[in-house]
Write a protein that binds this DNA or RNA. Sequence first.
DNA 1: TTGAAAGCGCTAACAT
DNA 2: ATGTTAGCGCTTTCAA
Lengths: 353, 353
Amino acid sequence: MSGATIYDVAAASGASIKSVSRVLNGEANVSTALRERVLAAVESLGYRRNMSARGLAGATSSIIAALVDAQLTIEHWRSGRGNDYLSRLEMGVLMEVRRADHHLMVELIDHASPNLRRDLSALLASVRPRGVILTPPNSDHPIVLETLEEAGVAYARIGPERNLSQGVCVAMDERQAAFDMTKHLIELGHRRIGFVTGPIAYAASQRRLEGFRNAMADHGLPIMEGSVAQGDFTFQSGLAAIAGFLDRNLPLTAVFASNDDTALGVLQGAAARGLRTPQDLSIAGFDDTPGAMFATPSLTTIRQPVTEMAALAARGLIPGYQDKDAPASVSPGGCLLAPYALVVRNSTGAVTP
Amino acid sequence: MSGATIYDVAAASGASIKSVSRVLNGEANVSTALRERVLAAVESLGYRRNMSARGLAGATSSIIAALVDAQLTIEHWRSGRGNDYLSRLEMGVLMEVRRADHHLMVELIDHASPNLRRDLSALLASVRPRGVILTPPNSDHPIVLETLEEAGVAYARIGPERNLSQGVCVAMDERQAAFDMTKHLIELGHRRIGFVTGPIAYAASQRRLEGFRNAMADHGLPIMEGSVAQGDFTFQSGLAAIAGFLDRNLPLTAVFASNDDTALGVLQGAAARGLRTPQDLSIAGFDDTPGAMFATPSLTTIRQPVTEMAALAARGLIPGYQDKDAPASVSPGGCLLAPYALVVRNSTGAVTP
DNA sequence: TTGAAAGCGCTAACAT
DNA sequence: ATGTTAGCGCTTTCAA
C-alpha cells in the first residue's frame, strides 16, 4: 500500500516504467488508453512518487526552498515582534506547491556571514531545490544571486530593487500604494502630513517615500521642514519619530509611517502625549500586520499581498504552472505585480479644524 | 566544487566510500587517522551529502516535517490574525535541524478531510521524513497517530492530552501557568476574578481553567456565578465575554482570558464601556503573542515556550541529539517540559477599592 | 578496522 | 507511441 513503486504501477497497468513516468510527468506521446490504465493503477495502488528518488535521478528535487534570513528571523523572534511576513509567505507557497506535488522547505541563511557563499552552495548542492524564493533584503544580495546563478538553480525574488529581469520577479507597487494612502489622507482634509521612513537598506523604504512625495506634490502641498523622520521599521522608531515631531511643535494633523510597527509606535507615543487618534492626529501604517487590526484605534494601512506574491513566486518556479490561473499584471520592469489594498480603519479621520 | 560526491571524498582521502560514510554518520570502528583524513577531504572539497541520495538509500530522509493543520492555518490567514505560533515553532525546529544536517519541511494536512488517512500516508510514503512534528489539535488526532504508527514514522506531539507515552511528548505545564497567573492577580488584591475559556476541542483550555480554579480554591476564594465565560480563542469571543459580564453587572475587578486574542477582545470591550485598564479592570492573557506587547496598555500574559517545545521535539526526533544540551525536565506523564514565564506588563494592577 | 558490491526508485538517453 | 537500460549518490549487507 504505502510502498508501491513505479514498477508496481507498471506491472498493474501492463505498461513499462517509462510510460508510467510519462503519464506522471504529463509528457507527450502517450495514448489515451494507456494513460487511463496507468492512472487507474496509480489510484488503486495509492502510488506516490518517492521524493528522494525523483530528486536523485532528476536534475532537481521537487522542493521549493524559502531562504529566510537568519539574523532577521532570530531578531524578530527575540524581540517578540512575531514574524507575520514569514507565515503569510509560507501560506502562499503551500497553496501552490501542493497542487504540483511539490514541497516547501524552509532554510535559514545568514546574509552577513563570511561563509555565505560556501553555506549557500552547500545547501544547494545537498537539496538541489526546484527553485528558491528570496525575500528582502536577500532579493538583491549580490552574493546570493551570484551563487544561485552559478549553481544553476532557479529563483524568484520578492520585492527586488535592481536587475528586475534576473530570475522570477514578484512585487507590489509600493510607490503607488504609498501614493494612494497619502491621497486618502489628503482627501480627508489633511495638509500637514508627517512621514516616517523605513531603513535605507530596504528598497521599499525609498519607494514608499517617493509615493508620499509624489502625492503631496500632485496636490500642490508642501512637505514641511523636518516632517520626514528616519525610521527603521520598529515600534521604537515610531515612538522616537512622534516625539521628535511634537518636541519641535510641528503642527501636523496626520502621520504616515512606512510600516505598521512604526505606526503603532507613533500611535502610542501620541497617546502618551495626550493626543487622541484620529481626532487630534490621524495615523496610517503599511503592511497590515495582525497588530493593525487589534490596535486601539484599529490602524488604517496598506494590505501588502505577501501571500499572493509568494504564490506567484512558487508558480513561476514550477514549470507548467505559470498560466493555469488568470495571468498576473506585469510592471514595466518585468515584475509580476500582486494587488495591494488600502484598508481604511479607525486611525484616520477627517481633519477637525 | 558544488558537485563533490562521496567518491570524490573517498579518492581524496584514500579511503573507501564506506569508510567515508562511517565517518559522516558517526559510526564506530573508524581509526582516528582515517577519520581525520576523511574530514580534511570533506572540508577541502566542500562536500555535503546529497539529501535525495541519503533519503533514497536509507530508511528515512533527513527531513523533519511540521504537519500544520490546513483549516486552522487558512482560517488564521483569512482572518488577518496572523500565525505567530507557526513562526515560533519553525524557529525552534530550524535551530536544531541545522546542527544535525537536517531540513525542515512544512506540510499542510487537513484533519477534517475524509481523505486524511490516504493523504497523510501518501505524504509519508513520498517524503519518508526522519520525524514528524504534530501540533494541537492534531497531537491527539487518532487517525493521524494511527497512520504514523502504521507507517513506522517517528513523531513528536506538542501539548498532547492523552497517551502521553506515545511518541515524543513535549509540553508546558498549562495548569501551573494558569495557576501562577491567577495567583498574580490574587496577590494584587483581586478577589472577584472572571475567566474566559478556550474552545473545548483544545486540551489546553481545560488545563488552564483547572489552574484558575485551583488557585482560587487554594486562596479560599469563591468563583462567582456566571463569572466563567465560554470563549474560543478569538478576539470576538473576548468582546462577547466582557459584554456578558458587564450586562449582568458582575462586580469583577479582573478578567483572566485563556489566550491573548481573547484578552485583547476583553480589553477593547471594556474600554468601549468606559472601563480603564488596569484601574477599573485588570486583564490577563495567555501565550504572549506579538499583539500583547503592543496593546495599550500592554498585556500581562504567560509566555508560551513554543520555540523551546519545538526545539525539544526536533531534538527528540533526530537520533543522537537527545542529550547534547541540558536535559529538559519531565512531567509525571513522561512529557518533556519547556519552561513558561509569567510576563507582567501594564494591564494588571493592584485593586483600587 | 576496512572495503566491495548490491540496490533504493526514479529520470533520461537511447532504442524500437 | 512505447520500451530498455544505465545511472543519480548514497546506505546497507556481506566479506575480508
